[in-house]
């Protein structure tokens, strides 16, 4: 019996020139060309995009939620990376 699933592709759309591609969802396609065409018809019917990336879902490596603390908490105390950390006299404008 037919048990041949078309692969799943994750679709990223650039909505306007100057913005980065954003994940919008997924779809199935037999090949890359079809993935782009399907993404165009599925995710840009209302002029939502100017560029499409289609990436085989199996090619995406994701961080694991279990590692969330290890990966992201260390950034918590590095407040000096943010401009608001630095108090400057009011006379200094626009820095």
């Amino acid at each position: 019996m037919e048990k041949q699933h078309w692969p799943l592709w994750e679709i990223f759309i650039r909505s306007r020139q100057g913005l980065s591609h954003r994940h919008v969802g997924s779809l199935h396609a037999a090949d890359a060309e079809m993935a782009i065409e399907n993404a165009r018809d599925v995710y840009t019917r209302r002029q939502e995009g100017v560029s499409i990336w289609a990436i085989p879902a199996t090619e995406i490596t994701a961080s694991s939620p279990d590692e969330k603390d290890v990966l992201f908490d260390p950034a918590d105390d590095k407040v000096y990376r943010h401009p608001t950390f630095y108090d400057l006299p009011d006379e200094v404008k626009n820095m």
């Binding site: 779809l27 199935h28 396609a29 079809m34 399907n38 018809d41 599925v42 019917r45």
Partner: peptide, 11 residues
């Protein structure tokens, strides 16, 4: 034959 193609033919 498949949902994606339904959308394409309609387009």
């Amino acid at each position: 034959p498949v949902l994606e193609e339904d959308i394409a033919l309609t387009n």
